[in-house]
């Protein structure tokens, strides 16, 4: 059960096309996400990754197939699945505290006002916004707004956190520090995360597993890539790890060419129900060089293997 905590089971999404027919975003899509994993979906714009996330959020419904969460079919939005939106989607007439408290009181309708506030403050502090509780979204920077969005999503203590390119509108520096924070919080709480991104480096840093989607329309899950980097990775020396470049090259290679060409030459043994799991291998010379280095690094390598 834990291996398929989230399970997309043969889902399709079709829209009526202007010419009277239907256009298929994707069909027969199968994907499982284990509990406690951080999964990133990458693919080009228009491949249907946001549709996939909206279906999982319950904001959109599949034309075919079902999505199971924890063994049960989802039938709409749920407090068990919190969404961090691409544009922060804060309610501008509410303060920071008001926005988070709104979510808390939706989760716990019977909580007293003081309890709701106390609970909300805890999550505002978690994203480092204490002192800004009474500011309105318009008074906050883009990064701070997204922090509030994160606090709001976490405050309902969801089973799954859904993120739709949450950092794409931020500058590089802010994006980095927010990624650090999200990673820290998700690791501390063992949160299951389903995130959409088109930023390869973001996926490498955050994800335990990267799902590669081919170009739409008629997008498919080409493969899922297991992130070989150690769990306790640091942003600063990520690139020193011998598995870093093989992984990065593999992802970039997919985005640049294979996402386009993959469909023309689908491997004969490709089973849409079980997309292949790929572990980018460390090239032999690099592995040898790494092995001869410090004990710490060989320890890291053993972790990968």
């Amino acid at each position: 059960m834990n291996e398929r905590f989230i399970s997309f089971e043969g889902i399709a999404r079709r829209y009526p096309a202007p010419d009277g027919g239907t256009s298929t975003i994707f069909e027969n899509l199968w994907l499982g996400v284990p509990k406690g994993e951080f999964v990133c979906v990458i693919g080009h714009s228009g491949c249907g990754k946001t549709t996939l996330l909206n279906i999982l959020a319950g904001l959109d419904a599949p034309s075919e197939g079902v999505v199971l969460v924890d063994g049960r079919e989802i039938g709409g939005p749920s407090l068990d699945r919190a969404v961090i939106f691409q544009g922060h989607a804060l309610l501008p007439w509410r303060t920071v505290l008001g926005n988070v408290a709104y979510a808390v009181s939706s989760r716990h309708p019977r909580m007293s006002k003081a309890e709701v506030e106390e609970h909300a403050r805890r999550f505002i502090a978690l994203v480092g916004l204490q002192g800004s509780e009474h500011k309105r979204p318009a008074e906050l920077s883009g990064g701070m707004k997204q922090r509030v969005g994160i606090a709001r999503a976490l405050s309902i203590e969801p089973k799954i956190l859904l993120m739709d390119e949450p950092f794409s509108a931020l500058d590089a520096l802010t994006r980095g520090s927010l990624q650090d924070e999200v990673r820290r919080i998700c690791r501390e709480t063992g949160q299951t995360v389903f995130m959409i991104t088109h930023d390869v480096d973001e996926a490498i840093y955050l994800a335990d597993r990267v799902v590669l989607m081919t170009n739409g329309p008629g997008a498919m899950v080409a493969e899922t890539v297991v992130n070989p980097l150690p769990v306790d990775r640091e942003r600063t020396d990520l690139h020193k790890h011998p598995a870093y470049y093989p992984l990065r090259n593999h992802l970039i290679d997919f985005l640049v060419t294979r996402s386009r060409t993959w469909r023309d030459a689908i491997p004969a043994d490709h089973d849409p129900r079980r997309p292949p799991v790929v572990r980018p291998s460390i090239p032999a010379p690099a592995a040898a060089a790494a092995a001869s280095e410090t004990a710490v690094q060989s320890e890291m390598l053993r972790n990968i293997a």
Partner: peptide, 11 residues
């Protein structure tokens, strides 16, 4: 997006 926030919070 505001309506979606309300929907995901089961308001």
């Amino acid at each position: 997006e505001w309506l979606n926030v309300a929907r995901t919070l089961e308001v």
